[in-house]
Amino acid sequence: MAGDARTSANDPATIARERLRAAMVRLAGGDSGALEEIYTATRVKLFGICFRILGDRKEAEDALQDVYVNLWQRADRYDPTRASPISWLATFARNRAIDRLRTGKVRGGAVPVEEANPLPDQAPLADSLLVDAENAAQIHTCLSALDANTQGHIRGAFFDGYTYAELAEAADVPLGTMKSWIRRGLQKLRACLEASEAS
């Protein structure tokens, strides 16, 4: 594991991230050629996200196309001083996929994990393009402080794109009960994350 190396300026993760950041800046400046570089470096991660949310290969490929075309059109929305490029792109892709779910184009929902066909080793730059390791540790710490049930529901929303109503149905509880469970969880999560920022 490259845990310590990630903090060094010369390690592969930092280099990959800075290369991606530079490509995003070039794209925003009107260099369309930068799009292919960004696609090559990020397609495996972003396609994995789209597929996980949409649960259908064709839909996920349409979503992926939509993500990169929109990125090209509006690369200027990425602020290189504020966010890690891969973190921003991952959020962008997930939001686009969720939006597809909610606009009724697809009714995919959950994908069983075993169908998700992981590419652990062949994935280009997969390891280098993990989102900030420190943030990752903190969100996991704070999530795992929640009761297992609530944690499961919050993860269901994030990973499978479930709404409150879908989670309530799956757990066979009234909608209000599910909302109340998750909101208690989110309240604790926020307190935990904010405490970590303050320290």
Binding site: V44, K45, A123
Partner: peptide, 20 residues
């Protein structure tokens, strides 16, 4: 930004070559 690292748990997948 806090939730973004969770996407690292989503398995990467190779899209068809015609997507590009």
């Amino acid at each position: 930004n806090w939730f973004a690292p969770l996407t690292d748990e989503m398995a990467g997948m190779e899209p068809s070559s015609d997507v590009w």
